[in-house]
Design a protein around this nucleic acid. Structure first.
Lengths: 160, 160
DNA sequence: AACGCAACGAAATAATATTGCGTCGGTTGC
DNA sequence: GCAACCGACGCAATATTATTTCGTTGCGTT
């Protein structure tokens, strides 16, 4: 199930990271091959799972989510069952946009959005009240200073 | 420049968050209107800036980025000039995928990817050596436990 | 009650996606 | 070496989708 990626595949990934809705005709032009093999490569990358999907990026502030903040959660028990249980809980919280399980003194880091501070405060109380939670620390974001696609193709390719 | 979003617009945003490459025909079918007005709405949302763009989601592990970690940076000076300077520096670091300026004791939180631990360690040394950096704390991610689209449409709509 | 605005949808056209197939290296096996 | 084979390409044909055009409808205003 391993796929060898050549320079054209990397270019395809790079372009689709920047504009996931580019037409295949335009994409093929940019990567320097004709449309049919280009589309076949994209399909292969999708089926292989290297391209996991496509997403529209929205301006959350324009949609009424004025606040973005991190919540750092310490749990009481780090037993696998309890970690799984907390992940389940995270999945059910709509205000949590992304979450990571961490090594170190913080067990979970959650990136949250909310329409206002009050909503967020109420939500933090919910978190604190959840089972197995020892404490929650928060940090409001003042500004998103970078949001790059996942794969840094400009430099330092690992498997080039 | 203000746009009124009705239920159909929200549905469009919701669908495109889940699958940004859905055809307009399929999208129009799902939101319950015909293709032409559906496309007009999408274009309007794009031009209005509510849809900022489209991005392919890639499986970073399959591409050789086995490690994802957070770096929390304390600066020495929080003067605006110095904050801006540090943001410029972040922009030039390919391993930094996302970064936020925070309120509280951490000035910047950076989400980083790297092919391996050695590369990341070297990178952390680079950060530490940058001007105006007081210290850097890191936390490796063990698992991404959630990655939802930005706008939680299921519940708690702010401007519904 | 008529006007005007905004948005819709059917139909026509333009562009794109997708399939089928013949061709061209590059490799393998003899 | 040489021929069969494999994989990928690109052209051409077809299917699907995007986009434009335009007449109509619903609704708020005068």
């Amino acid at each position: 199930m391993t796929v060898r990626l050549d320079a054209v595949d990397w270019k395809i990934l790079d372009e689709l990271q920047r504009d996931g809705r580019m037409t295949n005709v335009e994409l093929s032009r940019r990567v320097g091959i004709s449309a049919p093999p280009c589309l076949r490569r994209v399909r292969a990358l999708e089926e292989e799972g290297i391209i996991e999907g496509y997403r529209a990026l929205l301006d959350e502030k324009r949609l009424g989510y004025d606040l973005m903040a991190f919540a750092m959660v310490h749990l009481i028990s780090q037993a696998e069952v309890d970690l799984d249980a907390f992940q389940e809980r995270i999945a059910g919280w709509p205000l949590v946009r992304s979450a990571w399980m961490l090594s170190g003194d913080v067990d979970f880091l959650m990136l949250c959005v909310a329409p206002d501070l009050r909503t967020f405060q109420t939500f933090v109380l919910d978190i604190t009240a959840a089972p197995n939670v020892r404490n929650v620390k928060t940090a409001l974001t003042l500004k998103q200073s970078k949001d790059a696609p996942i794969v840094p193709l400009e430099a330092g390719l690992p498997k080039a």
